[in-house]
Simulated scan of single mutants.
Amino acid sequence: MTLVRFLRASGEVDREVEAAAGANLLALGQANGQRLEGACEGAMACSTCHVLVAAEDFGRLPAASEEEEDLLDLAAHATRWSRLSCQVAVPDGAAFTVTVPPSAYNFDR
């Protein structure tokens, strides 16, 4: 199990969740109250599930595909640590930290 830490854009911890390695980050976030829209339902046709992976955890993930990189070019607040949560499988190991940028809030929950 991996402790997944979701941070608010302010850097404050919003929620910490235990997840099995390989769990889909978008589904995990949505099931745990994170404001990740995922308008395309994981079909990689939008960037409404954009997250910022902590720099120390970014290298634990496989490289993004060219299609994912193209969509991240359209995401507000994108950085070199950006990923689409629909394309991220929770890595095995210790804690894994992501920040939900303020631009991800296309709707209210």
Results as ranks from 00 to 15, higher is better:
E67C: 06
E68C: 08
E16A: 10
G93W: 07
H77W: 12
T2N: 07
T97A: 11
A63T: 06
R15P: 02
L26K: 07
Q87N: 01
M1G: 11
R35S: 08
A9G: 01
A9P: 01
E12Y: 04
T79K: 05
C86F: 09
L7T: 00
L74M: 15
A95N: 08
A20K: 12
A45I: 05
A89Q: 14
N24R: 12
R8H: 12
Q34M: 15
S47M: 12
S103R: 05
A43W: 07
A43H: 09
L52M: 04
A63R: 13
H77M: 11
E18V: 07
W81S: 08
L3D: 09
T2I: 04
L25T: 11
Y105E: 15
E56V: 13
F107P: 00
L7N: 03
A104V: 03
A63E: 15
V53C: 05
L3R: 08
T99V: 14
A95G: 11
G11I: 05
F6A: 02
Q30K: 14
N106A: 13
N32K: 11
E18W: 01
R5W: 00
E12M: 01
L84H: 03
L74C: 12
A27I: 14
A21H: 11
W81P: 00
G42C: 08
G93I: 10
F96H: 06
S65Y: 11
G42R: 11
A20W: 00
H77G: 06
D70V: 03
T48A: 05
L84Y: 06
L25C: 11
A9V: 00
V53R: 00
N32I: 06
R5P: 01
D73M: 13
A54S: 07
A31H: 04
G29C: 04
R8V: 00
A55F: 05
Q30D: 02
A64T: 09
A76F: 15
A104E: 01
A104N: 10
T48K: 13
L36C: 02
G11Q: 07
Q30G: 09
S103L: 05
E12L: 01
L74K: 11
N106L: 13
D57Y: 05
E18A: 15
S10M: 08
V13Y: 01
A31G: 08
